[in-house]
Design a protein around this nucleic acid. Structure first.
Lengths: 182, 182
DNA sequence: GCAAATTAATGATTTATTCAAG
DNA sequence: CTTGAATAAATCATTAATTTGC
């Protein structure tokens, strides 16, 4: 570990070359392009960029591709995290998840009488939920938000998402599973 | 800063006043259910969900109903937009033989030993465009990116790709500009 | 000062979604 | 219903920072 094996820039051949590290120049240019608005370069663009950057050191197309992918992903990640911290005080959510699940059918709810009558028309929903939805969308990209931390929950699979059941059953099942989460 | 004010979740039912804002927990669960496959909950399901979510804060059946309605509607909206963009942003991937840009996977890029599922095409912003994420981004770091801004058609042709103008060319342009800097 | 130990960054892979074409 | 195309999300893996005890 401590061996800071100097990686010659001669990437090819050698054999087990370790990963690519952008040279300062390469990095600068990549960042400049990103800030300039290029988030997802096309294949052609990757190719061009690679060619140009190769004059500063060894580089491959996949390095460029990965760089933009990671850059973009981590920007979003950072923003999500920040935004969530802004919003929900309470720490990362492992709080409520019950393996055992209390799945039960809250019986006696069939009629749904409490709100059935005031079921609003479809036209109004846009107005009503607009702002709230913005909030949601902001956090949406963390939809499953297992982000938060790497520490607490290792991997939490929530939905198997099997497509072998009828829609209704599947939905009911999903509801149950979802409800079972808390 | 506009959207951050959503903080007060006070939907106190006291005076039939302000509208509902989902709490983070409620939101998370709703999203989870939606992604789990529940797009249009039945009345019964709405009721169940409402009961469960009410343990996190004030909520009514119609809120849940509206939420799903809007979520679904906006997903469709988003897709429509995406579809439209697809007609303008060209797909530049599989096409035919490009001089140095053969089929799939930006080959011509060295070993490409693991260069597998890549080949990005330009259409990223779509997810973020819709509901205020852009706002957040701007708020966060100075409104840098034209994530989803409409693309002014530029007259710049670099590649003989079939038709297409606009977004992709814009990006190519950006690349050119960026590359031109060194 | 210095390394071992720990944490943060980030390059590289894998996995899950999603829509639409067949 | 299945599958292809294309990601974004999640994860793995390795390296650089840094902390810490001596």
């Amino acid at each position: 570990m401590s061996s800071v094996s100097v990686k010659e820039v001669t990437s090819s051949s050698g054999g087990g070359n370790s990963r690519w590290y952008p040279t300062p120049d390469q990095l600068m240019l990549l960042q400049r392009m990103y800030r300039g608005g290029l988030k997802t370069p096309s294949a052609t663009q990757v190719q061009q960029i690679t060619e140009r950057l190769s004059s500063f050191g060894n580089i491959q197309g996949k390095n460029v591709f990965y760089w933009f992918q990671n850059r973009k992903a981590r920007e979003r990640q950072k923003l999500r995290k920040k935004f969530m911290n802004l919003f929900q005080q309470h720490p990362l959510y492992p709080a409520h998840h019950q393996p055992g699940l209390p799945l039960h059918h809250v019986s006696g709810l069939e009629d749904a009488s409490s709100w059935k009558g005031d079921l609003p028309s479809a036209q109004t929903c846009n107005l009503m939920c607009d702002c709230g939805f913005v909030t949601m969308m902001m956090m949406d990209h963390g939809g499953t938000d297992p982000y938060c931390t790497r520490v607490p929950p290792k991997t939490l699979q929530l939905f198997p998402v099997t497509t072998t059941i009828s829609a209704d059953l599947k939905q009911d099942d999903q509801v149950q599973q979802s409800l079972a989460q808390f």
